[in-house]
């Protein structure tokens, strides 16, 4: 399998505070990579570095390289807006726009100018909603406000909104933390199906979720990547004592 993203010598600073320390990491194509670790260890920061969402925070600084399909996304000439079309993001709390379900999904295609004709847009919206396993639940109420959906549906709508621009990579920052167990399982199901087409990186504080749903897992600790392995190996035979302490401590 190919590496979709390669992180090299990567460090990240909020002002003087170093949040990420000299990371090396490969993200495999069409796989689900989970990032685990205690709160505040830099998982979200790292995720936001992968599509340069941290650029919107003042006083931050990145060092090192992140190669996406072989191109360094921190190179000076990179168009950040275009980059984010290829590397989309789903947030911790569902954040549908206060607009109709249809308009939420059509937002991305409209802003990037993907579907010129109405019929194309309709098709794209349907495809995306189907891709996010939401179509059957909302097909008769596309004009209703997205805020009328329940949280699980809202999160799947946000996933539909993200895949509508046909990204290569989807970053998810604790996408299930605001959801109940049933909705969580449906989002995990969805992730597994999406992994056939997309590369997925998911941050989770839920060890079972990482074990259940991911192919690779990275364990972060105080801004460092302590261990990275296939999920199976990392959970069954952790190499670093820190990893072992963390996963057993969390389990028992």
């Amino acid at each position: 399998m190919n590496n979709k993203i390669e992180v090299r010598e990567f460090s990240f600073y909020y002002g003087a505070f170093q949040a990420l320390k000299n990371l090396y990491l490969d993200i495999r194509e069409n796989a689900i990579t989970a990032l685990i670790g205690p709160s505040g260890c830099g998982k979200s920061t790292f995720l936001r570095c992968l599509n340069r969402m941290n650029d919107t925070i003042r006083g931050t600084r990145a060092e090192g390289q992140v190669f996406f399909d072989g191109r360094d996304i921190y190179a000076p000439a990179v168009d950040v807006v275009e980059l984010r079309q290829h590397i989309g993001m789903v947030f911790q709390r569902p954040n549908p726009f206060p607009q109709s379900i249809y308009d939420n999904v059509a937002f991305g295609p409209r802003v990037v100018g993907m579907a010129a004709r109405r019929s194309e847009l309709d098709r794209l919206v349907q495809e995306s909603l189907e891709g996010a396993a939401l179509w059957d639940e909302v097909k008769h109420r596309l004009r209703d406000s997205a805020l009328d959906l329940n949280p699980g549906q809202q999160q799947r709508l946000c996933i539909a909104r993200t895949i509508a621009v046909k990204p290569k990579v989807i970053l998810m920052d604790e996408p299930c933390s605001a959801l109940d167990p049933v909705a969580t399982l449906s989002v995990e199901d969805l992730m597994r199906r999406l992994a056939q087409e997309y590369t997925i990186v998911i941050v989770t504080h839920n060890m079972q979720q990482a074990a259940r749903a991911s192919h690779y897992t990275g364990f972060f600790w105080l801004g460092e990547l302590v261990e990275f392995n296939t999920t199976e190996n990392l959970f069954s035979a952790p190499k670093a004592p820190l990893t072992e302490a963390y996963i057993t401590g969390r389990r028992g």
Partner: peptide
């Protein structure tokens, strides 16, 4: 909410 802006930027809006 800030999340709206982030949500828009994260899918390639200017």
């Amino acid at each position: 909410p800030k999340e709206y802006r982030g949500g828009a930027l994260a899918i390639g809006a200017t």
